[in-house]
């Protein structure tokens, strides 16, 4: 049995199955993160004390003097670097796709490998951020802002990890498909690329709304 249009495009829709599939999945992800953002807006606008850290709390957490708002406890430099890492990984993954279409498998491996390194770097910086919060006794339960921060960035990090697994597969054992079914492999790289850009896109919105505002 052969499922039609797994590799070639269906003439009337102009799409192969996985491409439509990944976009549908991303549409659903838009609704997931949309609901999270919408909840963030509601919680923030609904509670006048959402952002303000009381003097007592700041003192108890040994943050007196330089923290008055909950977002002040977050590290803008680390998040800034992380933003750049993700943006760069978006460029590298699109480069790996372009290299494949130029039939340059070596360059594909290179760019895909760089993407994986970026993803690992992002997770490393994230781990530093989280552990520094924990070491200051800042947990999701500490305040609703931190709850939102940990939930949103945590879910985003889970998406990064999920992507990382697929990227590693395509870089390693999955790349054997380049020999047997080259077009199908190009499609796979394209679809995982679409997902990866979406993860980048979510971060582009998380960064200012959590760290800067």
């Amino acid at each position: 049995m052969q499922i039609p249009y797994t590799i070639e495009e269906r003439p009337d829709t102009g799409l192969y199955n996985a491409k439509l599939g990944i976009w549908l999945f991303l549409a659903s992800e838009v609704m997931l993160f949309g609901a999270l953002f919408s909840s963030y807006v509601l919680l923030r606008t609904g509670d006048p004390g959402f952002m303000t850290m009381s003097h007592d709390v700041a003192e108890a957490l040994h943050l007196e003097g330089h923290a008055h708002r909950w977002s002040d406890v977050l590290s803008v430099p680390l998040a800034f670097v992380n933003t750049l890492v993700l943006i760069f990984s978006s460029v590298t993954i699109v480069m790996s796709w372009a290299s494949l279409r130029l039939k340059d498998f070596g360059k594909f491996r290179l760019w895909m490998g760089l993407t994986i390194l970026c993803a690992l770097g992002f997770m490393g910086i994230k781990a530093i951020e989280y552990s520094s919060k924990f070491s200051h006794h800042l947990y999701p339960e500490t305040s609703n802002f931190l709850g939102v921060y940990f939930t949103l960035t945590g879910l985003h990090a889970l998406h990064v990890i999920g992507g990382l697994i697929v990227l590693a597969y395509l870089w390693g054992p999955g790349s054997k498909m380049w020999k047997s079914q080259p077009q199908r492999f190009v499609n796979r790289v394209e679809t995982v690329g679409l997902y990866w850009h979406f993860v980048d896109l979510v971060w582009i919105f998380l960064f200012p709304t959590l760290y800067l505002l």
């Binding site: 799409l15 976009w23 838009v30 609704m31 949309g34 609901a35 919408s38 909840s39 609904g46």
Partner: peptide
């Protein structure tokens, strides 16, 4: 076109979600 249609639909419902707050 199919992708555009899907995304327009999603954007509309995303906007609806923003009615929540």
């Amino acid at each position: 076109q199919a992708i555009y249609a899907l995304l327009i639909l999603t954007v509309v419902f995303f906007a609806v979600l923003m009615i929540v707050p």
